[in-house]
Computed example of a mutant assay.
Amino acid sequence: MNSVIGEILPLALGVAISPIPIIAAILMLLSPKARVTSVGFLLGWLIGIILAVTVFTLLSSILPEGDEDASQPIKGVIQLVLGALLFLLALKQWRGRPKPGEEPKLPGWMKAIDKVSFFGAFGLGFLLSALNPKNLIMAAGAGTDIGAAELSTGSIIGVIAIYTLVAASTVLIPVVGYLFAADRLGGALDALRTWLTKENAVIMAILLLVIGFSMIGKGIGSF
């Protein structure tokens, strides 16, 4: 179990360091309906992460079993493909970074984020976590590792819980912190939002590249 946790932690971190969801959560925390929308967004974010990694874990568990010391070509091919997709996403992010002096562009829906309801925020959190291509690749990689490890049901639940906690931490911490210390966090959250908005593309490009190399390495090691 410990070895599987070690393998999935970088992937969970890849989900956690996602500027767009963090910016969305901060914008909700700075809106008039902060306590309602931020909690809805957090719940949607958590459920989306759990659903995605669980589905890929179940799919991976039906792959043919084999000796742990023997080569696992199917798992290796999946990891190589996922690594290649991460490289492509990294290239797209790098090419899309703002030029010097140019204002970074964020999704249009963020302009109306202070008007969303609890259920709208929930749906947004779910979509950003469960259906985002980058997060799906991370979930597929984690699910492949978990499903192929032949763990007990309790251990699988524990590993998925750890993956979810780490992956959701960058949304979970600001939301929970705001609920307990709203007055003290306003300025810090706004400064963080500004920095993430400016550096979004560069952060994501570097992150995807590093995790892509890790995935490729694991894929090669599976043969």
Rank of each mutant, 00 (worst) to 15 (best):
E7P: 00
E7I: 08
L9K: 07
L9M: 14
P10H: 11
L11H: 05
A12N: 09
L13P: 06
V15G: 09
V15C: 10
V15N: 11
S18I: 00
S18Q: 01
P19S: 01
P19Q: 00
P19R: 00
I20S: 01
I22F: 13
I22Y: 04
I23H: 03
I23Q: 02
A24R: 05
A25M: 10
I26C: 05
I26T: 11
L27Q: 15
L27N: 14
L27R: 14
L27P: 04
M28L: 15
M28R: 05
L29F: 06
L29I: 09
S31T: 04
S31C: 08
P32T: 01
P32G: 02
K33G: 01
K33I: 00
A34N: 11
R35Y: 10
R35S: 13
V36K: 11
T37R: 00
T37C: 01
S38P: 03
V39G: 03
V39K: 10
V39F: 11
G40D: 07
F41K: 04
L42A: 11
L43F: 13
G44T: 09
G44I: 08
W45F: 14
W45H: 15
W45P: 02
L46R: 03
I47G: 02
I47R: 02
I49N: 12
I50P: 04
L51R: 01
L51P: 02
V53S: 07
T54G: 11
V55S: 06
V55I: 15
F56T: 15
F56L: 12
F56A: 07
L58V: 14
L58C: 04
L59W: 08
S60H: 04
S60E: 03
S61W: 01
I62G: 00
L63R: 07
L63K: 06
P64C: 07
P64A: 03
E65V: 12
G66H: 10
D67L: 11
E68L: 13
E68K: 12
D69A: 14
D69R: 10
A70T: 07
A70Q: 13
A70E: 13
S71A: 13
S71P: 05
Q72C: 08
P73N: 04
I74M: 12
G76L: 05
G76A: 15
Q79W: 09
